[in-house]
Structure formats: C-alpha cells, structure tokens
Design a protein around this nucleic acid. Sequence first.
DNA 1: CATAAATTTGACAATAAATGACAAGTCAAT
DNA 2: ATTGACTTGTCATTTATTGTCAAATTTATG
Lengths: 101, 101
Amino acid sequence: MSNQFGDKIKILREESQLLQRQVASQLDMDTSMLSKIEGGDRKAKKEQITQFAKVLKVNADELLTLWLADQLIEVLEGEYLALKAIQVAEEEVKYNARKKK
Amino acid sequence: MSNQFGDKIKILREESQLLQRQVASQLDMDTSMLSKIEGGDRKAKKEQITQFAKVLKVNADELLTLWLADQLIEVLEGEYLALKAIQVAEEEVKYNARKKK
DNA sequence: CATAAATTTGACAATAAATGACAAGTCAAT
DNA sequence: ATTGACTTGTCATTTATTGTCAAATTTATG
C-alpha cells in the first residue's frame, strides 16, 4: 500500500539524525505508534502534521499533500477505474475552486 | 458536499419512472436508506453498485467511477491543497499501473 | 382543500472500524 | 550476552458507520 507520508517523515527524521524516541516524545506518542506511522500501518492524525513539520523542519503543506495523497490512493487501491475516477474528481475540484465554493 | 453518484442514480431512476419503493425493494433496503443514498447522506456499499446498475439499466463502471470520485472528493473536502494532492495521487496511480503492481 | 402516496429527516441501537497503550518481539552494534 | 532502536501483535476503548423505525415534509390527485 501507498505510504508517501510515512516514507517522507522517516527520511526527514533520518536526515535530521533524530531517533524515533526523540520525535515521538515531542508529538506525545510512543515509539511504536511512530513506527507504525512511518511504516504506513497507522495514519497520523491531521493535527499532528503541523507538529511533524515543526520537528522535522519542513513545510507543513508538503507533508499535508502527501498525507492527503495517501488517503486518495487508499480509496483507489485495487480499482481498475482508479484513473478515471481521479480524473472525474479532479474536474470537480477544479470546478469547485472556480466557484470559490 | 459532492454527490455525483446519488445524483446520477436519482436521475436514472426518474427517467425509468421508478419509485424509490420499487428500486429499494430490489436492492433489499428501505426507502429511507435509498433516499439518503440519493441525497448523499449515506453511501451505497460497493456491492450494491452492480445491483443499481442492473435495476437502472446502466453500465456498472459508470456508477462505480462516480462512487469512487465521491469518496475522493470527500477526502479533499475543504482542503486548499486538494489539487496538488490529487496530482500526486494521479502520478502514483499511473506509476502503479505501469508496474502492473 | 383534503387526503393519500412518495420522499425526506431525525433519532437511536447495533455493528464495525480506528485508535492508543502496552508487552513482547526482532535486529544490529558492541 | 547486553543494550538500544525499532517493529509487531494484541486488546480494550473510543469513534464512526450502519440499518431501522417513526415522524415530518413534500408532492400528486381527487
């Protein structure tokens, strides 16, 4: 399954030379939870994204984008109509943006 | 909120001059549930899509596509990064398709 | 208008899914 | 063999989804 968010924070954490223990404590979670988030077994809650961004010194938008993309992929997992559906959805997103809905 | 699936089956039902009662009974649900599905308050379960297609004499893929698109939109509801996320997801879908994953 | 049929809405118990916490596990370095 | 870092499994609890029923509203028809 897709795990762009988890992969990303893991890489960022390693680049920052931080241990899971150190990151986890700042986000008030235990390391097993962080491990699962990195591994894609659990998903971070939305509020935690900002915290991750802060600790890992990266733009929150970038993480949020990956986090959202993961959920999209999850919906589409194994669907042969995935591409079609995504295109329909994209149309609507664009339409809604136009309408400032 | 987005409800392409519900809108579609409602239109198809009306074109077929069927009452909710008639469609609902064939799908083994009560009319209040069908009403909610048409109105986007509840979502049809995946297995029901085929049945809808049969009763409404329409291609199941078409309905499934709308149903999937609705779920994508739901994830993206209110997100200003929606478009970006959808593009990231689209890339991955295409990539996975290539890999015949 | 009156009333009957069709549809929508609200509330709620039942069911299912997600979550957090903890213990136990693996793995690598020393 | 011990330690530290990380992963995995389980399970009780919380949270979300579901179906059903009754009541309310809207729509069609005499």
